[in-house]
Amino acid sequence: MNLTLKIWRQKDSKSKGQMVEYKVTDISEHMSFLEMMDVLNEQLVSKNEEPIAFDHDCREGICGMCSLHINGEAHGPDRGITTCQLHMRMFKDGETITIEPWRAKAFPVIKDLVVDRSAFERIQQAGGYISVNTSGNTQDANAIPIPKHDADLSMDAATCIGCGACVASCKNSSAMLFVSAKVSQFALLPQGRVEATERVLNMVRQMDEEGFGNCTNTGACEVECPKGISLENIARMNREYLAASLKR
């Protein structure tokens, strides 16, 4: 495959970026999108040009590091996958592909296609945990009976890898799908109920402070989420938040 790539280049967080056009040739349709990016970077290095910075780690769709906005969609045109799992067979020979970083005020660009997603970490630190003493006297998890249905829903929510595709694809740059998944995975379990009130209040407060937009229920996040996190989690978070506000 021969492709034209229009890629966002930005020297650093303070510089102004722009779209730059590149050509790549003889790309195998069996390559992953990131492997195609590797080929381009090898070309750039061989020409003594600065390679394109982009996030990646496990390349197995687990870590949530890859974060490209490809042809107008988070993680590209395929569904239920991250960019590392996107294959070049999803594109046509001769196609022009636009590649941009996640766009949100809360996700500032560090360089080229790499964005700072530490806002998600600060939200997690605000309440995305349970306080358990793990110093040798931990209770057996199976000692607390949990309905299978609740355990399944909690596990579904816990599959969120925090990649930020929900923010990137939302027209409002809302982080509610991410935050609701992290709230839900604990809210559904008895271990999480103990700190549920403070958790949802603190995580939503932090989310608002980070400058994410308001959810208007377009559902774009659910469609683009590589892990299929459901909008039901946002409804659950809304209920949790209102109940917590009344309790406080």
């Binding site: 229009k6 966002w8 779209m19 906005h69 042809n71 107008g72 969609e73 045109p77 636009t98 941009e100 766009r103 949100a104 005020k105 809360a106 660009v109 694809s169 027209k171 409002n172 740059s173 809302s174 400058g211 994410f212 937009g213 308001n214 208007t216 229920n217 377009t218 559902g219 774009a220 469609v223 683009e224």
Partner: peptide, 23 residues
Amino acid sequence: RNKSARDVKYVNYKGSANSSWMS
């Protein structure tokens, strides 16, 4: 508020791929 949450717009944003025109 929502407009201000994205200070740099996408060059290519395909909203029709994942949400309705009405929404």
